[in-house]
């Protein structure tokens, strides 16, 4: 297939910049890792918020999820960084990057959690009630253990998405993997030589997650 592109590969020029690739790779890991944790808590909070008895919280949660899911991440990053973060005086673009990525991903995680809890049949709640459980106990002993199995597979998929979505942070000049590869490309003008290692790098990050997810699914089935 590469024959058809008539492309002269020049790996030597890329090799000079290998440190840039390594740095970018680790920055992507850091950013994804912190976003992963933060987005899980954001998701958990808004999943609760959507079922909350407080009407304002419910509306706010709905509003948050619809806005985030209905707008492109690229636009969110630009608005958050140049409007919101600028007004708050948040100048660290790495922290801003982690926050916006978590806010974005949190909306999806919230929907994953909500859908899983929602899918538990009504009888299960009634069972809890009939056993004399409090609401908290019903959730703890009956609902969550069942919902957990339905949350884990899509959640791992969402985590793999965070890693890939972090590449968009390059537009606010966060020196992550994609940014650095683009930079090397603009210095050496070797497009494919920069982007092929990039693709492989992302695969190295996401493939273990996908493997782990499959093993987890199997274990949960048994």
């Amino acid at each position: 297939m590469f024959l058809g592109t008539e492309y002269n590969f020049n790996w030597k020029s890329i090799y000079e910049y290998k440190q840039k690739f390594i740095d970018g790779f680790f920055t992507t890991i850091y950013i994804s890792f912190f976003s992963l944790i933060l987005s899980f808590f954001i998701g958990l909070f808004f999943a609760y918020g959507q079922n909350s008895k407080i009407i304002l919280l419910r509306f706010f949660s709905r509003f948050y999820i619809e806005t985030i899911r209905g707008t492109p991440l690229l636009v969110q990053i630009l608005i958050f960084f140049y409007v919101i973060a600028a007004n708050l005086g948040l100048d660290n673009r790495y922290v801003a990057g982690v926050i916006i990525l978590s806010i974005f991903s949190g909306a999806y995680i919230s929907e994953i959690i909500r859908a899983a809890i929602f899918s538990i049949p009504q009888e299960q709640y009634e069972t809890g009630l009939s056993l004399g459980f409090t609401t908290f106990q019903t959730y703890k002993y009956i609902i969550f253990p069942q919902a957990y199995k339905r949350i884990v597979p899509p959640l791992t998929g969402q985590f793999a998405s965070i890693i890939k979505d972090s590449s968009l942070l390059s537009i606010i000049s966060v020196n992550e993997f994609t940014m650095n590869a683009q930079e090397v490309n603009s210095y050496t003008f070797s497009t494919l030589e920069s982007y092929i290692p990039l693709a492989i790098g992302y695969l190295i990050l996401t493939y273990p997650i996908s493997l782990w997810s499959r093993r987890l699914e199997k274990r949960l089935k048994d």
């Binding site: 592109t5 008539e6 492309y7 002269n8 490309n185 003008f189 070797s190 497009t191």
Partner: peptide
């Protein structure tokens, strides 16, 4: 993308 486009 200009120079890569020229090269390819």
């Amino acid at each position: 993308g200009l120079i890569p486009s020229l090269k390819t």
